[in-house]
Design a protein around this nucleic acid. Sequence first.
DNA 1: ATATCAGATAATATCGATTTTCTTCCAGAT
DNA 2: ATCTGGAAGAAAATCGATATTATCTGATAT
Lengths: 226, 226
Amino acid sequence: MAIATNSDTTQEASATHRAYLMIRRMILVGELAPGEKLKIETLRKILDMGGSPIREALTLLVSDLLVERLDQRGFRAAEISAHNFQEILNLRCHLEEIALRESLREADHAWEDRLVISHHRMMREPRTNVERFEELHKAFHMNLLSGSHSPVLLKFCNQLYDLNIRYRYLAGKDLSYARRDIGKEHTDIMNAAVDRDVETACRLLLDHYRNTGAFLEKHFSQEAAE
Amino acid sequence: MAIATNSDTTQEASATHRAYLMIRRMILVGELAPGEKLKIETLRKILDMGGSPIREALTLLVSDLLVERLDQRGFRAAEISAHNFQEILNLRCHLEEIALRESLREADHAWEDRLVISHHRMMREPRTNVERFEELHKAFHMNLLSGSHSPVLLKFCNQLYDLNIRYRYLAGKDLSYARRDIGKEHTDIMNAAVDRDVETACRLLLDHYRNTGAFLEKHFSQEAAE
DNA sequence: ATATCAGATAATATCGATTTTCTTCCAGAT
DNA sequence: ATCTGGAAGAAAATCGATATTATCTGATAT
């Protein structure tokens, strides 16, 4: 749940956890394509470990909805679809609004600090390292909600965030933030949140998501038409 | 996702799936107490299989929030708390309302058939076999939402349903339906749903949950006071 | 030509054993 | 008396091998 700020998490911890992080990353950024068969043997060679941690990592990813399990025929990267994209976007808007309202209601001093810091870090990060920026971007959005005392709700939001970001990667790393002034949007959201202006914060947050959503949707339609 | 109507699912399928169903059941009905350590070796003997399927089943249950994984110290049944109970109840109300509205918006003929049938089966079932009744009860509630074309949302509702039912079992099998006319409540909900009366259906459904919630809450407080 | 079946092949699922990691408990030092 | 260090034991995590199950291929029958 915690958003790691340094990325060498991959070195330590258990084989299962390493496998989980690496496979998850590969699916999110599209190195493993949607629908692609995930063979244990292949992954074993890539990750250099036994089958058990691989299987366990894949099992974890199944419940993240990033991997699908086929009866007794192994695993594959989850399929994508325009419908699924819309569903994720829609659910995210619903759940994050609930979480944001609760977060602002419960928010304390520590929450405000976390929010400001993560905003600052995100703004300072150059867009050159896309994955690094996305990590900070996610941290900011999750911190926005982190005042909420609903771990389950936060878990759902976290999951949906990842599912969504995957579509963003698949649409192409470069074009994601081309047009809009993303920086200002984030700052406005943060300010409304810090002011505890619930209605404005919710409106801005949902607009933020829906705009990105509409943008990506357009991209997918173009792609489908080609 | 499909609600099995016959319960001998336990015999067929993979070892992993059997382990999953059995451990899940044991946690839901309270045979495995909240916080209880789930040792692989112990479960191996009980379920008579190797460690791998057990681990995999436990991993699946972690994402159902029915099992907690402790760093490198194995698994245990998820803890319970009044706060967690309230969170589940609250989230359920939010999510099921979203799902019900969508379900009624999209509902077709097949949905209506499913709903009526599952209602009928639930009403016919004697309360003597609690687990069997709970299965049908769940099927009814899930069918209510099943018109929705949001598999992710339905998955969340399904998960939350299980988390909630666990508290009901823990509160004591007998007293769950003591006072209210549960039958009528369900029938009223179904009728409003079939009439596509969205507002009434939502109101009745949420009242239904909140009443049961308040009842259980009272029970837990009493228990805590003892 | 198409469909069906059997054998061969490949991949998964599962097991039993090994390695690693935590926990406990006791001796010795402060 | 309390704290620290370090074995011994228990448990989890992981590996390599085996048993199962699905898939592919080609031959035969329709």
